[in-house]
Amino acid sequence: MRKRSAGLWVAAAAGYAFLYVPLFIVIVYSFNNSRLNAEWVGFTLDWYDKLFHNQDMLAAAGNSLLIALTASAVSTVLGTMAGVALYRYKARLLQILVLAPIAIPEILMGVSLLIFFVMLNFTLGLISVALAHITFCIGFVAIVVRARLTGMDETLTEAARDCGASPWNAFRYITLPLIMPGVIAGALMAFTLSIDDFVITFFTAGAGTVTLPLQIYSMIKIAVTPEVNAVSSLLMLLTLALIIIASKVSPSLLRSD
């Protein structure tokens, strides 16, 4: 019995190593005093210094932030509505439209939105990217909010209605505060998904607009430089911080059951 557990432990440890060693290498080499990502030479912060003086990179980071803030704000409102609608009214068409963008390969949404925007003579840029990001973020927010509603006592809202509260007031003072952890977790999730998105942005950004993932893509297509390691490490740090906040707000988000 113990022997079998040991085998399982070894196999699982190999699995965890497979997951983490690559990311660990990226972070370590971001501090490496060598242009080649090949062997450890010495410690330096030069690549971070270069990064903060790279105008293209800073502009791309600004664009990413602007898009992520807009997309997460709008998709949180629409996604919360969708979550409530799915829970209360079991809206079938909405359910398909909410889940389909998540279920199909990303490239399909990217190219169909490209055709759509170009046919409407809509200039590709920050706005088209934000509109595209909202489309796939709605589903994730809706799923988190609906999960929160499922664990909630719906009779509280009914009680408020019986006591004479208008539907809006019942929502504003009873339902919304109760589902707030889910809403915030959904918003943080939408922000992370938007700032990390590459495929859909790739098709909807047009030639002039660059976001952080697009900038990383063009850099690694040309050459592997530790500057990419530095920006990657910072992005990982940001994502980790957002996940920790989300899990503090809504512990159920990361719980196994």
């Binding site: 290498i25 080649l36 990982m236």
Partner: peptide
């Protein structure tokens, strides 16, 4: 959580990591 965490790091970073390893 340790299984999910790498999934939340940027997709391109995860591809780039293998570019370094296979360099």
């Amino acid at each position: 959580l340790l299984v999910i965490l790498p999934f939340w790091s940027n997709f391109l970073i995860r591809v780039y990591a293998w570019m370094i390893i296979f360099g």
